[in-house]
Simulated scan of single mutants.
Amino acid sequence: MYHSVGDRSDDPYRVTVTPARLDAQLGWLRRRGLRGVSVAALLAARERGAGRDLVGLTFDDGYADFVTHALPLLRKWGCGATLFVLPGRLGGDNAWDRLGPRKPLLTADGIRQAAAEGVEIGSHGLTHVDLTGADDAVLRAETAGSRARLAELTGTGPAGFCYPYGTVDRRVAEAVRRAGYGYGCAIDPGALTGPYALPRVHVGEDDTAVRLLLKRALHRWRRRPAAGV
């Protein structure tokens, strides 16, 4: 689970990795015989009983630096990824991060550019709100509404949804399923773990080879069987 790729001199939420660190992390994967792919590609491989050499790579929020910094490195290392974007904030910024700094988000053209290069585009909702506290109308807009907007933008309805802040409950997961998504990404959903609450591991600037090895081992240990949410 990545977010922004760029300058991290001001990074109070620790959501940014430098291009040099991402380059090293992708190289580490490849040297271990692993390859980064989109979540959709990973799930499809798992359904075939394959994919042990694949790692799903996700980039949340749709920062503009994905195209300028992350995409060239993914191309360099032959990796795919899923980019979760906010169609209600196209060309805006991360206003939800109270402490800042303000980071620009992708425009519609930037999202289409990423999609044209083979990046899977998924929804992160419309505006980045905690859906567990949303009323029914907001929940529909953030799930079904964002999917419709992205279908108009890219020509394809997204298969994946990513819960803002990683927060999900059974009601929210069910709304994502009803909206037509094939899967949902969380962070550490516990008993809800399943196709609509996939656990992910945060990757940051401090994650060198040893830390990545430990995080991969811990993630595999804590995975639980699908709960059928």
Score class of each variant (00 low, 15 high):
residue 158 P to F: 10
residue 138 V to P: 04
residue 3 H to T: 11
residue 152 E to S: 06
residue 59 F to P: 10
residue 101 P to E: 10
residue 86 L to A: 03
residue 24 A to E: 15
residue 46 R to S: 09
residue 188 D to H: 14
residue 17 V to P: 00
residue 133 G to D: 14
residue 22 L to F: 12
residue 186 A to F: 00
residue 43 L to E: 10
residue 164 P to C: 12
residue 208 T to C: 09
residue 168 V to L: 08
residue 53 D to W: 09
residue 140 R to D: 15
residue 63 Y to L: 01
residue 147 R to K: 07
residue 62 G to I: 03
residue 63 Y to C: 00
residue 91 G to I: 03
residue 56 G to I: 00
residue 200 R to G: 00
residue 75 R to L: 12
residue 189 P to E: 11
residue 36 G to E: 04
residue 9 S to W: 06
residue 82 T to H: 06
residue 206 D to I: 08
residue 41 A to C: 07
residue 58 T to I: 10
residue 178 R to Q: 15
residue 102 R to T: 10
residue 116 A to P: 00
residue 73 L to V: 03
residue 186 A to I: 10
residue 23 D to Q: 07
residue 38 S to W: 07
residue 125 G to H: 02
residue 26 L to F: 00
residue 202 H to S: 13
residue 165 Y to E: 07
residue 151 A to D: 08
residue 20 A to V: 13
residue 185 C to I: 06
residue 188 D to N: 14
residue 64 A to F: 05
residue 92 G to P: 13
residue 20 A to H: 13
residue 20 A to I: 06
residue 150 L to M: 01
residue 193 T to H: 11
residue 143 T to M: 00
residue 164 P to G: 09
residue 227 A to M: 06
residue 27 G to C: 06
residue 80 G to K: 02
residue 21 R to W: 02
residue 89 R to N: 08
residue 161 F to M: 01
